[in-house]
């Protein structure tokens, strides 16, 4: 009996491990596949030989991508939008979250209701587009970063964190006559580094990944973030944008494939680089239990 049970136990364990190994490979392999194709030579890409390891690896495709001035400019734009956007996000989110975390704020519930309502109902694409264009923001960085300045979800997470800071820590300062700005800047913020760091990561990722805003509000290629170039080149097949890059590698279908994967991976690279930090903060459990406002 005992032997039989441990037998079925073992079979279960092994099957479970294998199934999850399969799922994990299915999730990860596409990224790996793009990497090996992007650095393999054209002939082996053409004949579909690249499966597990790169063949005659070289970084020609990446060199070609970064030689293209428009695409390089796209990366620079994305980086600028990310830094400016995230800074604005953090400032605006904490300005919003702290007063709303205070129970003694008169009208707090009304503010909260009006803000949470915007999570469930919006005016829609066209009115937003008309608003941004009436404000004269089309083709400016403001059009990219302003409409999403505060994510209500992130604001609620931050507010919950502020609420969890014991009142005893700020009481003394309040009694000594310190005003709320001082308490916020000198006591609350220094205690909130973990949540600020987490939100910086989350906002930075979504700024880098942003697509709808730039698509709607930017019309000049010179202003495009990299995501729009990836969409135009890979999804819409507008090879005119990388005509120069392909020309430089000897216009073949295989070269085009490698270059496309190189662009896709390059556009995902900053997020992949931030990913270990995201996981680390995540494991610290900063987000857990703070979701419900």
């Amino acid at each position: 009996m005992g032997i039989r049970r441990s037998w079925s136990e073992k079979t279960f364990e092994i099957i479970n491990i294998m199934v999850l190994l399969g799922i994990t490979i299915a999730i990860f392999y596409p990224f790996y596949y793009m990497l090996i194709v992007s650095i393999s030579d054209n002939v082996s890409v053409m004949t579909n030989q690249v499966k597990w390891l790169p063949i005659n690896p070289s970084f020609k495709a990446y060199a070609a991508v970064f030689k293209d001035p428009l695409i390089l400019n796209g990366f620079v734009n994305s980086f600028v939008y990310m830094v400016v956007g995230t800074t604005l996000n953090i400032i605006m989110t904490s300005l919003c979250a702290y007063p709303l975390s205070r129970n003694d704020l008169y009208g707090k519930n009304l503010f909260m209701k009006l803000i949470v309502f915007t999570m469930f109902f919006s005016g829609g694409l066209i009115p937003l587009f008309l608003l941004v264009s009436n404000l004269g923001l089309i083709n400016s960085i403001a059009a990219v970063v302003l409409p999403g300045a505060i994510s209500v979800f992130n604001m609620i997470i931050m507010r919950s964190f502020f609420q969890s800071i014991p009142f005893a820590l700020t009481e003394a300062a309040h009694i000594d006559g310190a005003n709320d700005l001082y308490v916020f800047a000198r006591i609350i913020l220094p205690l909130s580094k973990p949540i600020v760091a987490t939100l910086i990561l989350f906002y930075a990722v979504s700024q880098w990944n942003a697509f709808m805003g730039p698509l709607m509000f930017l019309t000049e290629k010179a202003n495009y973030p990299i995501q729009l170039f990836v969409r135009n080149i890979v999804i819409e097949g507008q090879t005119s944008d990388i005509g120069m890059a392909i020309g430089a590698t000897g216009a073949s279908a295989a070269a085009e494939k490698s270059i496309k994967y190189a662009i896709i991976l390059a556009a995902a690279a900053p997020v992949i680089a931030l990913y270990p930090f995201i996981i680390r903060y995540f494991e610290k459990g900063v987000m857990v239990g703070s979701v419900k406002g």
Partner: peptide
């Protein structure tokens, strides 16, 4: 590994 695709942009 399973969380990774969630953070990758829709365009990618």
């Amino acid at each position: 590994i399973s969380y990774l695709p969630h953070f990758i942009s829709m365009v990618v």
